[in-house]
Computed example of a mutant assay.
Amino acid sequence: MSATQPLREAARARLPVLRAAHPAQFRPLTPSRLATVAVLLGMAGLFALGVWRLDIDASRLLSGFGQLLHFLTLMVPPAPTQGASVAGVLRALAETLAIAFLGTLLAATIAFPLGFLAARNATVNQALRFLTRRGLDGLRGIDALIWALIWVSVVGLGPFAGVLAIMMGDIGIFGKLYSEAIEAADRKPQEGVVAAGGSGLHRVRFGILPEVLPVIAGQVLYFFESNVRSSTIIGIVGAGGIGLVLAEMIRTLEWQAVSFIVVLILVMVAVIDLLSGALRRRLIGRAA
């Protein structure tokens, strides 16, 4: 008799007690649980296939760390150069900020009525809602960088193309977010307006709008912060702003100027994050 046999017998004796106390843990595999396992296995298989097909190699990344450290040493200390003076960089940063602000403001304004048309509880009719949502899907499905390339070809290089690129991409996103906020609005104020004799327009104006406006304002502030970063990226393809200066410094191997610009971008984004966060908290506090 082995030393572990008494332990096995004790475990077998406790098995009916455990099965009765925790039936969910001992139930057989149901179709839903099998489907969950199949989905997880499928995702793992897709991950492995992606690693193989995309030629992802950790050894190449590790071997490139030496070159990365070399670039970092070239970037220290951050310093402006003749091609990227302090005044020129600050002017480009202000241009980036203006691109993000105007693009976000135009998108938020245009998407406001579209959000009501796309919402199930505020639209004129379901056919118009369907067309509006599909149009928003189309705008949202194209990245801001692709919009920048399109508008640079249409209106030429410069910040105007950047404003249009930010605006087009954000109209689709804002329209979807607005419609979801409108559909999630509490029905009790709306029912109260209708019970008091209000029309459908009154229901939207006094039953929905006061509740969703703080949510919409918070979303606009968040996307303004996000679009400051996006404006930097689209500037690289010629849509104006600091991205254009940054791309030029990279092409000319002015690494100290590159790090100087990156540091200023990080400072600008951090300041905007603090200000927009404070405004969002104020709006949420007032709404509560």
Rank of each mutant, 00 (worst) to 15 (best):
residue 86 V to Y: 00
residue 87 A to V: 12
residue 88 G to V: 05
residue 89 V to N: 04
residue 89 V to M: 10
residue 89 V to Q: 04
residue 89 V to D: 03
residue 90 L to C: 12
residue 90 L to N: 14
residue 91 R to D: 13
residue 93 L to T: 09
residue 94 A to R: 10
residue 95 E to W: 10
residue 95 E to A: 14
residue 96 T to K: 02
residue 99 I to S: 00
residue 99 I to M: 14
residue 99 I to T: 01
residue 100 A to Y: 00
residue 100 A to M: 05
residue 101 F to A: 15
residue 102 L to C: 13
residue 102 L to Y: 09
residue 103 G to N: 08
residue 103 G to C: 10
residue 104 T to H: 07
residue 104 T to E: 01
residue 105 L to R: 06
residue 105 L to V: 14
residue 106 L to H: 08
residue 109 T to K: 10
residue 110 I to S: 11
residue 112 F to R: 04
residue 112 F to Q: 07
residue 114 L to E: 08
residue 115 G to C: 12
residue 116 F to Q: 11
residue 117 L to Q: 09
residue 117 L to A: 11
residue 118 A to R: 02
residue 118 A to I: 07
residue 120 R to S: 10
residue 121 N to D: 14
residue 121 N to K: 07
residue 121 N to M: 04
residue 122 A to N: 04
residue 123 T to P: 05
residue 123 T to E: 01
residue 125 N to Y: 03
residue 127 A to R: 04
residue 128 L to S: 10
residue 129 R to M: 09
residue 130 F to D: 06
residue 131 L to G: 10
residue 132 T to L: 09
residue 132 T to C: 13
residue 133 R to G: 12
residue 134 R to M: 08
residue 134 R to E: 06
residue 136 L to Y: 00
residue 136 L to E: 00
residue 136 L to W: 00
residue 136 L to K: 00
residue 137 D to A: 05
residue 139 L to P: 05
residue 139 L to N: 04
residue 140 R to V: 00
residue 141 G to P: 01
residue 141 G to C: 09
residue 141 G to E: 01
residue 142 I to N: 01
residue 142 I to S: 00
residue 144 A to V: 13
residue 145 L to G: 00
residue 145 L to A: 01
residue 146 I to S: 05
residue 146 I to M: 15
residue 147 W to Q: 00
residue 149 L to H: 02
residue 151 W to Q: 06
residue 153 S to F: 11
residue 153 S to H: 12
residue 155 V to L: 09
residue 156 G to L: 08
residue 158 G to F: 01
residue 158 G to L: 02
residue 159 P to E: 12
residue 159 P to W: 14
residue 160 F to W: 13
residue 161 A to H: 02
residue 162 G to R: 02
residue 162 G to C: 02
residue 163 V to G: 01
residue 163 V to E: 02
residue 163 V to Y: 00
residue 165 A to E: 01
residue 165 A to L: 06
residue 166 I to L: 14
residue 167 M to Y: 00
residue 167 M to G: 02
residue 168 M to A: 15
residue 170 D to R: 07
residue 170 D to G: 11
residue 171 I to D: 03
residue 172 G to R: 03
residue 175 G to M: 02
residue 176 K to E: 07
residue 177 L to P: 03
residue 177 L to T: 04
residue 179 S to P: 13
residue 179 S to L: 09
residue 179 S to T: 06
residue 179 S to D: 08
residue 179 S to I: 06
residue 179 S to Y: 08
residue 180 E to S: 11
residue 180 E to M: 07
residue 181 A to V: 10
residue 182 I to D: 09
residue 182 I to K: 07
residue 183 E to K: 06
residue 184 A to F: 02
residue 184 A to L: 13
residue 184 A to Q: 14
residue 185 A to F: 07
residue 187 R to N: 14
residue 189 P to H: 08
residue 191 E to Q: 15
residue 191 E to Y: 06
residue 192 G to A: 15
residue 193 V to R: 06
